[in-house]
Simulated scan of single mutants.
Amino acid sequence: MRYHGTDIDGVSLEPEKLEIRGTSLTELIGGIDFIGSIPFTLTGERAAPEALAKLDAALAGWLGGIAAEHPGYRLAALAAETGAGMAQAVTAGLMGFDKAAAKQAFAGLDFLPAEAAEGLAVTASVPALLAAWRRHKPDSKLAKDWQPPQQGGFVDRALASVADAPPPSPAARIFFDDALVTWIGGFGYVPPSIMIPRISIGTGVPVHHALAAGFGAAGPMHIGACEQATGMIMAALAMPQGSPEQRIKLVIDAVLAKGMRIGGFGHPLFLEDPRPPRLRQRAAELGLAHPALELFEAACALMLAEHKLKPNVDFATGTAFAMAGIRDPGAAAGIAMMGRTIGMLAHIVERRARPPFGVTSATARKYLDMVPKGWL
């Protein structure tokens, strides 16, 4: 596999495959947890258990310090009150960022790049900003007086911040962690949520600003499909009767009747996204059984039979998030973006070491006519 313009990750079509630091993403899913994926994505090395414990404690501690009076929380809440969407509210919250505090909180992680501190604080902030958005949306029925979770590691606290119910089993919690790993990267700089932070950091903005730009790239055609997929699963789960096949068909037919696309199926590059089959395999390895998983299988069979489409990462991870107790579709998309911040950060670190606009003036002038006119 040849990575294009980056040493971090890349995609191939023959065979259809995603790689991060020379390792297939499907091998990482179930082979590494979310905390372990952070140093691996940033450096290409697996960190020792004691180093991972230190990283986990730093992330959990940062999230635990973002209460309702925190500037970032207040900014996200104010944005939510105006009717802002998830990505807009998180972006607003990230503008209440304290770089000095981040450097102090994540000091001593010498197995990571120096620039990582500011980025890791962004990752750890996302669950709290999602909590603010959920509680201050105009239609919210949640209590406003939120306090961050203080028990467990970072992934447990992140899930508790956005879920409406605890995972029904330890296996469902592990499956949630697996789903986070699917989002860390694998496509190089092609995804908008990676490309935009790379472009932004090249202009000299702070790391948290470039990461916020990545959230600004989350729209209905990118990340939004995870929101729609989770919403479809939740709508089918809420139906009082009917088989999984009947319920998911009613939901899909209702979406199609509105002239909308079915989020979570098909892919702009792959004939078959390799991530959903691996997540299905993980569910079997973990011995998982859940109504959402039955709906996932029914949806896959229906979409293949009627539309010749296979699931992509959005429908697979939307199912995993629903199984973990996340019932708000926007929160599901936001937690997927939290996973993506790791890939964003790795690309920001790599990109910042290059010339401001990516190449020297002489190179830009030489190759300008070779840029495809329809590329951007």
Rank of each mutant, 00 (worst) to 15 (best):
V155A: 07
Q151Y: 13
R157V: 08
A171Q: 00
A160H: 05
P148K: 04
D164Q: 12
S161G: 13
R173K: 10
L159I: 12
A172W: 03
G153E: 04
F154Q: 11
L159V: 14
D177L: 03
A158L: 03
Q151I: 15
D177N: 09
A171C: 00
P148A: 09
P167C: 07
D164H: 09
S161I: 10
S169A: 05
R157A: 04
D164Y: 08
L159M: 15
P149F: 13
V162G: 10
F176V: 08
P149R: 14
F175K: 07
Q151V: 15
P167V: 05
P166R: 14
D177G: 03
I174M: 00
S161C: 14
S169M: 01
I174R: 08
F176Q: 01
S169Q: 01
D177Q: 05
I174C: 00
P167I: 01
S169R: 02
I174W: 01
S169T: 01
P149G: 13
R173F: 09
P167N: 01
A172K: 06
L159A: 13
S161N: 12
A163K: 02
S169C: 02
A171W: 00
V155D: 02
A163I: 05
A171S: 00
D156T: 15
F154S: 11
A160D: 04
A171E: 00
D156H: 15
G152Y: 08
A163S: 10
P149V: 13
D177F: 03
A163L: 05
P166M: 14
A163T: 04
I174P: 02
R173W: 04
F175W: 11
Q151F: 14
S169V: 00
A171Y: 00
S161V: 12
A171L: 00
F175A: 08
P166T: 14
G152R: 04
P168F: 00
F176K: 03
A160L: 06
A163E: 04
R173S: 09
L159K: 11
A158G: 09
A172H: 08
P167Q: 04
P168A: 01
F175M: 11
A172Q: 02
S161Q: 12
G152A: 12
F176E: 07
P167A: 04
F154I: 12
S169L: 01
F175V: 08
P170L: 07
G153N: 08
V155M: 09
F154E: 09
A160I: 03
F175Y: 14
P170N: 04
A171D: 00
S161W: 10
D177K: 01
F176I: 06
A160T: 06
A160W: 03
P149W: 12
A158D: 02
R173Y: 05
G152E: 10
P166S: 15
L159T: 10
R157Y: 05
A172D: 05
A158M: 03
G152S: 11
P167D: 07
A171F: 01
G153L: 08
D177Y: 05
F154P: 06
P149A: 13
L159N: 11
P148L: 07
V155G: 06
R173T: 02
P170C: 10
P166I: 15
Q150K: 13
P166F: 14
L159P: 11
A171P: 01
A165Y: 11
V155E: 07
A158W: 02
P149K: 13
D156K: 15
R157M: 10
I174Q: 05
A165F: 11
D164P: 08
S161D: 12
A160Y: 04
Q151K: 15
P170R: 11
